[in-house]
Design a protein around this nucleic acid. Structure first.
Length: 524
DNA sequence: CGTGTTTGACCAGCGC
DNA sequence: GCGCTGGTCAAACACG
């Protein structure tokens, strides 16, 4: 207890320091935005003016640059190609602090993503009215004619599918579910199971669980609806993800560009950072949202976004990014953990979104910063396991759960203080941010001195969030759980509120990059 | 006895 | 109108 309290105090100190830095940087960023008031919104307006209303800009207050790649992106996405990272891709760094400067837009001009979701998904109306769930036929009554025209294609509820490798019948996502039906769908001998949330009596959330004959180990869970009740902490990650993804989907199909940023940013930052693949399928018109490793499909009857946790595309398709690390199959499912997403030495600010970074997925790039952030994550894990193996404390990831806490703490401390780890992470982040962005690559805390070239990369010692990447050291963990969202969130955050979605952002807090600096970088 | 699962019936949407 | 399909209902059943 004493050690824990001591560590807690250290964490608090780190947190305070980080908060101060964050506020300072936020103020700095705000000043910059005020100095260039039109720059942040130029992306969206430009796209609209140039006759590309479908082009979804994930701008979070940062500006875009190159218009040539715009066409390239459009071709890519419209062609339903998997947006892959090619060697000749340049990476335009575009990191914002968060979406705070974008939020007023929704309030002033357009409905926010969440209201959009509520307006287009009947269950949310039911939540307010207290009726029973599937009010499919009540949707049309609440729309004016313009909305009917503009949102006609999004009447159907948005769904979020999570695909994982799982041996158990269902994926443990922290919620309580009751099976209410089973059906064998056409073309798939494996039956589809229907579940509804039983945490609250009238919770509208339902999910479908299905396997595929092609690969019985892959479990696809499709979530639908928004929880109308507080969720256990262990369930907030998944609920938040689905909510954010649904918001992204709805807003993407209804309000085009400007309605996307917060939810898209959250889902992007949460998922892309953890190596998820996105697949958008919308029976409406395909919305060319630029996502890492994304592809578009119009096969589904309902707009669906799929979080694919079965592959590690960055590790497999971009081995060069791994640097000296072997491009081994780094499947996130090995550490899946939806059942126990407690704090895990995760600083509070990381989970409540204060430090969430806003990632701007430039629509012009095939390859961009998000994937590289994922690289950073994998770097951490690789180093972590490397360290553990080096010390004979652990032989593989499957036994990590049984590690005593002090071992983990010691390992974490050793890793984070390991110069090779720091240098590798510094290289990764430098490659993201660019060497010319002085004072912009600070991560957290202060232990490593900034170098002369302006890398200024600092690592925090014991509170470095590497532990959050791993399952807790206690209890047995369901095989089908995931740490892809390691943040612990207040239960109310499960409801899709624009601001609350940012907690999905993982831990790195990037100040605004210097526009004049080297923002186009390659990851090699 | 309460809770959850199973499973056939039922309903609505859609295409022909 | 008809058949197919996905989704839901609810009675029967299982289990602790």
């Amino acid at each position: 207890m004493g050690e824990v309290m001591e560590e807690n105090q250290k964490l608090r100190m780190h947190l305070d320091r980080v908060m101060k830095e964050y506020r300072a940087l936020q103020m700095q960023f705000h000043d910059m935005v005020q100095q260039e008031p039109n720059k942040s919104s130029s992306t969206i307006s430009t796209h609209r003016e140039t006759g590309e209303p479908e082009l979804v800009s994930l701008s979070l207050g940062m500006s875009s640059s190159d218009g040539k790649k715009d066409d390239h992106f459009s071709r890519k996405t419209h062609g339903k190609e998997k947006v892959d990272n090619d060697d000749d891709d340049k990476e335009v760094l575009a990191l914002g602090l968060d979406c705070k400067f974008e939020l007023p837009k929704y309030q002033e001009n357009e409905p926010s993503p969440t209201p959009s979701l509520e307006a287009s998904s009947g269950e949310v109306k039911e939540e307010e009215g207290g009726k029973t769930w599937p009010p499919k036929n009540s949707l049309k009554n609440v729309r004016n004619e313009e909305d009917e025209v503009s949102q006609q294609n999004s009447v159907k509820r948005a769904r979020v599918s999570v695909r994982v490798r799982c041996d158990t019948p269902t994926m443990n996502d922290g919620c309580q579910w009751r099976k209410y039906g089973q059906k064998t769908a056409k073309g798939n001998p494996c039956p589809r199971a229907y579940y509804r949330c039983t945490v609250a009596p009238n919770c509208p959330v339902r999910k479908q669980v299905q396997r595929y004959a092609e690969d019985m180990s892959i479990l696809t869970t499709t979530y639908e609806g928004t929880h109308n009740h507080p969720l256990p902490i262990s369930a907030t990650a998944m609920a938040s993800t689905t909510s954010a993804a649904a918001s992204m989907l709805i807003s993407g199909s209804t309000t085009s560009t400007s309605g996307l940023s917060p939810s898209v940013a959250s889902i992007l930052s949460s998922a892309s950072f953890n190596g998820l693949n996105f697949y958008l399928s919308d029976n409406t018109k395909p919305t060319p949202i630029y996502l890492p490793n994304s592809s578009l499909s119009s096969s589904s009857s309902c707009p669906t976004i799929t979080l694919d946790l079965t592959t590690s595309s960055n590790a497999s398709s971009h081995p060069s990014k791994l640097g000296s690390f072997p491009p081994r199959s780094y499947s996130t499912i090995q550490n899946l953990n939806f059942s126990s997403l407690e704090s895990n030495a995760l600083p509070l600010s990381w989970s409540n979104g204060v430090l969430g970074y806003g990632t701007q997925a430039q629509p012009y790039n095939k390859n961009q910063n998000i994937g590289s952030l994922n690289f950073g994550r994998q770097l951490q894990e690789a180093h972590y396991q490397s360290y553990l193996q080096k010390n004979n404390s652990i032989s593989n990831s499957s036994t990590q759960q049984s590690l005593p806490a002090d071992t983990l703490a010691a390992a974490t401390k050793a890793i984070t203080s390991d110069p090779s780890f720091q240098s590798a992470l510094a290289a990764a982040l430098t490659s993201i941010i660019g060497p010319g962005t002085s004072s912009t690559a600070r991560v957290l805390g202060s232990q490593t001195a900034a170098d002369e070239s302006g890398h200024n990369l600092k690592l925090i010692d014991q509170s470095f969030p590497i532990l959050s990447s791993f399952p807790p050291s206690t209890s047995t963990v369901n095989k089908c759980t995931s740490t892809f969202l390691s943040s612990s969130n207040p239960p109310s955050s499960a409801n899709s509120q624009p601001g609350s979605l940012m907690f999905l952002s993982p831990s790195l807090s990037f100040p605004t990059p210097n526009n004049n600096s080297t923002s186009n970088v390659r990851l090699h």
